[in-house]
Design a protein around this nucleic acid. Structure first.
Lengths: 334, 334
DNA sequence: ATTTTTCATGAAAGCGTTTTCGATACTTGC
DNA sequence: GCAAGTATCGAAAACGCTTTCATGAAAAAT
């Protein structure tokens, strides 16, 4: 016995009303006589009627679904944002279609298009850079979008993040103040604005404030992985470098563990500050001093912003900067 | 100028064919003369036509979307599974609606229902227990479902996981063989079959094989968190217990760090084996010896199984058990 | 040359809702 | 009691696509 799906029409017939009325009670429209509402609700329960969201979406042109483009769910940083996004999304009755992009240009285009095809009401984009093609696609579509945990360097898209320049100035400044003359700057690709533009600027600014000269050789561009950190650690050993600012926690954990495994004492011989305050930073020993970010909130606020955009509400400020902190743990003097 | 969406009808008119023909070329149906196909494709490009997936879904009764119920994306274990799921899902052109359940019964029911309302073609469920209500809901619906990383203890639902009993026997066996007479069993709620039924059974079996007596006092039931581990560590210190099997990596990391911080030497004074082989296990120092699970594959295989179910293909074996391993790292003798 | 098959296409009926617009039935005010 | 307003409801037209069925044309078989 194939379960025949019960439609709004069945309910209407059974309750002796029109589809319009059923639709009204389902959607909480007030123009229904209480008695009728009751009758319809009874039938709904009796028949176990569940509105078909797809049909609803077609008729209303709203899918109550938003698309989330995430580099990799497996990355704790992005996963935390995602959690914030999801929580406020469900608060507002939206569902989330999540797509891993691997920060691959082609894949990003692809998922963006399928998201648009699915008629998502809005999109949250996570990633460290935006290609021109992608930006163009964004502006073409009528679908609102917000960047979470990153800024469009043209500042043309609503976004929420922390102040990467200032936080880096502070972190590097601390390293210098605690006695390091040679502070390495370790990050992912410098072609990503967050690194090449903001963090690097902060690094230089901190140097300048301390009257130190910028040295190209202290800049290490690598990828965001634990392994890359381990490898970097061997390069670092035996140099004059005695501290490092690192743009990613897993990378930092690699550097730390690599250093420690080689007998370098952290923080005595080498100080370290990382950037994302992911749980990783607290799991390793010694615990990583880190810039702290309201990860969950970045996601949550992004989603909240998106709901406003979708409602065409007036937005006071589309580029939101959330407060950050600097938590001194065990890889700096204190 | 509000961008007027271009529909299949516009393409049809412009190309001088019927909607049916356009639909055919869009869907790769072979019954179209190459010349016509070409003409239609040209118009599609010219007009930048993108099929509306919602309308498509309504007409075809397929959403090409699957629902994923995950306890918490922020948990590395589940995130890894999710990644596997997503990769093969997109391989098969499915999109994923992801819902965090927090393993909360009520929330699970809720998300299941919205998933069903959205007409997902299939569901992947992650979680450690299934309430009867949920099970009933599953069986009511015609939507195929598979459990990833857990088993329905009634074995009535397709699932993919590892053999929790055998892997635990092996892990606990190793601990005993290496000299521990008192091995603690530390896990999350015993009401979850994975703990109370399978792992515990494995634990007892290992004891029995070694001729050891089961001792209620060695069973520690807590929650899966780093903090819980830290707390547990103080309880453990000073007892005769000299080893522990732990059901979760973050929990294990907590125990390890807690022990170490109190001056207990691991593995010399206390040996530890954890269960999920999440990256956490390798980040901590000493690195946690762990049962290894093919996390990504569990997700991937689950999704593959689901595609078969959705295609109504013949399934040889709906309860899939993937191979596990035991990686001796630094929290056991070797 | 005629009959069959096969191919290519179009007309139109859904798919299950929402929503507009008008109609009817009640209230209310006077 | 009657006009005017208001609350309640229904008919039916979308929404943008897929899919069945019929049809005519072209190809193959006789």
């Amino acid at each position: 016995m194939e379960k025949q799906t019960v439609t709004i029409y069945d309910v209407a017939r059974e309750a002796g009303v029109s589809m319009a009325t059923v639709s009204r009670v389902v959607n909480g429209n007030q123009n229904v006589k209480p008695a009728t509402r009751q009758r319809v609700n009874d039938v709904i329960n009796k028949l176990d009627y569940r509105p078909n969201a797809v049909a609803r979406g077609l008729a209303s042109k709203k899918s109550t679904t938003i698309g989330v483009i995430i580099p990799d769910v497996t990355n704790a940083y992005f996963a935390s944002l995602a959690r914030g996004i999801d929580d406020v999304a469900s608060m507002y009755k939206y569902n989330i279609i999540m797509e891993n992009s691997d920060e691959n240009d082609q894949k990003e285009m692809l998922v963006l298009n399928t998201l648009l095809a699915k008629q998502v009401d809005g999109i949250i984009f996570m990633g460290n850079r935006v290609t021109d093609k992608l930006r163009e696609e964004f502006s073409h579509s009528r679908t609102p979008i917000v960047f979470a945990g990153s800024v469009d360097d043209q500042q043309s898209v609503p976004s929420v993040s922390i102040d990467y320049v200032k936080s880096t100035v502070e972190a590097v400044g601390k390293l210098i103040k605690e006695g390091s003359k040679k502070v390495a700057f370790i990050s992912g690709s410098l072609s990503e604005p967050i690194n090449g533009k903001y963090r690097l600027a902060g690094y230089k600014q901190a140097l300048q404030q301390a009257g130190l000269k910028f040295d190209e050789k202290l800049i290490f561009e690598t990828d965001y992985s634990y392994e890359a950190g381990i490898k970097l650690a061997s390069q670092l050993k035996g140099t004059e470098i005695s501290a490092a600012f690192v743009g990613d926690d897993r990378l930092a954990a690699g550097v730390l563990n690599g250093l420690t495994d080689q007998g370098v004492k952290v923080p005595e011989d080498f100080a370290l500050i990382t950037s994302n305050d992911t749980q990783v930073a607290q799991l390793v020993r010694p615990q990583l001093t880190s810039i702290t970010q309201p990860l969950y909130d970045i996601g949550a606020v992004s989603m909240r912003l998106l709901t406003k955009l979708m409602n065409k509400e007036e937005i006071e400020e589309p580029i939101i900067t959330l407060p950050y902190g600097l938590d001194s743990r065990e890889t700096t003097q204190k």
